[in-house]
Amino acid sequence: MDSLLTSAVAGLSAGGAYAILGVCVVFTYRLVAVVNFTATALGAVGAFVMVMLTELGYPMVPAVLTGLVAGTAASVAVGFVTTIWFSGSNQTVKAAVTAALLVCIIALGLRLTGGQHPRAFPDLVGGAGLQLAGVTITAASLVSIGLAIVLTIAVEQFLGRTRTGLQLRALSERPMAAELLGIPVRRLAIAVWALSGAMTTIALILVAPLRSPDFGSLSLLVVPAFAAALVGSFNSFRAALIGGIAIGVIEGLASGFVGLAQYRAAVPFLVILTVLMWSQRGARWDEAR
């Protein structure tokens, strides 16, 4: 029992990062109506800029800040493409564009970063955080979960209580009407992409030391990000927060069993399948009657 509890707690750090990623996916979908397959690949750009600078001997703080700028800039570039070139397209087309860009970014990223050779990402938040029921919760876990909670609350308050938040909601619900009313639609959409890129970069920098951190592996963390967002039906920030943490904990539990450890990467896929099946339960039961 103690070993299972330890394994579950060990998954909190990844769970916090998944929660941040899931909230960012919901944020982008709700405000600019794009299912963003490139989310983690763009964050991986920033994370790898950071680690390559540290390998060259640059101090940690400037390297992290430069990585954040790179991840944000990459996200703004993709946002510019979807906002300007595909502004009149439907959600399916925009999703297809980001899926195609994901493949391109992964191929280019693997080429520029040395293929699937893992990089030694520094653990920015090392050490023990606190003891709970005899189990040590790492500082990285506390920071990642804390950031996820702060991001969720901040986004909810921002959208519900500020003028800019109301404009963003108008942008997502009635983009043409918002533009006619003089709301700076494109500028706000690019700002959404920028914030998403910055937060995704932070999440990947935190989770990279726990993974096999090659560019492709980090980019494909879009799967747990989408699983967390799907728990919230791509609408609820809080549900995405809970879903991301839960996925990390389940992965941690799986790693505690010898026979299941090698299948822990399948957990997000199982969550996606379960949520989709549950969402279709009414239709299937009606057919069965």
Rank of each mutant, 00 (worst) to 15 (best):
I145T: 13
G115H: 11
A133R: 09
G114Q: 11
L130Y: 14
C104E: 10
L142I: 15
F86E: 00
H117M: 03
G127R: 06
S87Q: 12
A120Y: 05
T92N: 14
T92R: 09
A148N: 06
V150N: 03
K94C: 05
A128M: 01
A140P: 02
D123P: 01
L151A: 13
I137A: 03
L151G: 07
S144C: 02
P122F: 06
I149C: 11
T152A: 09
P118V: 05
I153D: 06
T113I: 02
S141P: 12
V93G: 05
A100S: 14
A140H: 14
A99N: 07
A100N: 02
A107G: 00
G146A: 01
I153R: 10
G134H: 11
A120W: 02
G109R: 08
G88I: 14
A95Y: 00
I106Q: 02
Q91W: 07
Q116N: 13
L142H: 08
A99T: 08
G114R: 11
G126I: 06
V97A: 04
L147E: 00
H117N: 07
A128L: 00
I137R: 04
G146L: 00
L151N: 06
L110N: 15
A120K: 04
G129Y: 09
A120I: 05
F121R: 09
I149V: 15
L130A: 15
A100H: 03
V93L: 12
L147V: 11
L147I: 13
I105C: 00
G109T: 06
A95N: 03
A99Q: 14
G127D: 08
A140R: 15
V135R: 08
S144T: 13
T152D: 06
F121C: 10
I153C: 10
A107D: 07
P122W: 04
K94A: 04
